[in-house]
Design a protein around this nucleic acid. Structure first.
Lengths: 140, 140
DNA sequence: GCATTGCGTCACCATCCTAGTTGCACAATC
DNA sequence: GATTGTGCAACTAGGATGGTGACGCAATGC
């Protein structure tokens, strides 16, 4: 199902920024780390900037840096920033009025989906960017 | 992110089959309930058939029926049947060997993702098809 | 036996989303 | 003022999904 790797790349980029400390990193340098394009990086960091996780400065000697302590960045918030629509989708087909199931399934499914996504978020919430960085640096 | 509504449609179809009891329903009738195409229904029920949830009989007076009690069908198993790849994707870009984060991020992310998906599955596991059907029929 | 019904599967098409790429305006530094 | 770098828009390519038609095959009912 997963069509997008935005979340994984976002965590990767944030980890790279945290690893560099306060040093500003350009989108080109970050793109090299993820092996992708600078524009892709800027698009993603644009979302993270609007969410208050990073700050990008233009101009000479510009670049990106974290706008918050790594220990204050929880992964559930990162997912929400880059994937606002959630991970479980409802079907948007018109309801067939002659079918009881067709008429009543959507609220039920909506409830089940909401609880499942809450569980997913709760799990991600327990991990901070600082924790990710610590594990990466220890492994290396 | 959600690119597919297969899971929602699958639960809808299973609910419709459970609602009908043992009565065989054709793919055309089910398609009318979900407002989609019979082939789409057969494709999805083909997955659910391989997973042992439904049985399809060909020939005149054929159709589909549940192969298991609704109380024995847990939604996490349904999700696994129709979305085997999970909901959180890793990025598959080549690792940049000069970057510590690039080299070490994947196992860490893999672990975080696995735990998050486990939480999602655990939540879905607590709901059976019988429970969904009960709520749908009570609401109507 | 034979027509009918319905699944199983394939091929094809339209659509959407994502990622990749180029280009240009704007901002900040040197 | 030149250089550097972000922000943003437009365009392209690719893959995934859903929709549709067509065909073979099995099972039923006459």
């Amino acid at each position: 199902m997963p069509t997008s790797s935005r979340f994984a790349v976002a965590v990767h980029l944030l980890s790279a920024l945290a690893h560099l400390g306060g040093e500003g990193a350009t989108s080109a340098a970050l793109a090299a780390s993820v092996n992708t394009n600078p524009v892709v990086v800027r698009r993603l960091l644009g979302l993270l900037s609007r969410a208050g996780f990073v700050a990008g400065r233009g101009g000479r000697s510009g670049g990106y840096e974290l706008a918050r302590e790594p220990s204050k960045i929880r992964l559930d918030a990162v997912l929400a920033a880059v994937e606002p629509d959630g991970v479980l989708a409802m079907h948007e087909n018109a309801t067939n009025r002659v079918c009881l199931v067709s008429c009543g399934i959507k609220p039920v499914l909506g409830h089940v989906f909401a609880k499942a996504e809450d569980a997913l978020r709760s799990s991600l919430r327990r991990t901070t960017l600082a924790e990710v960085l610590r594990r990466v640096e220890n492994a290396g």
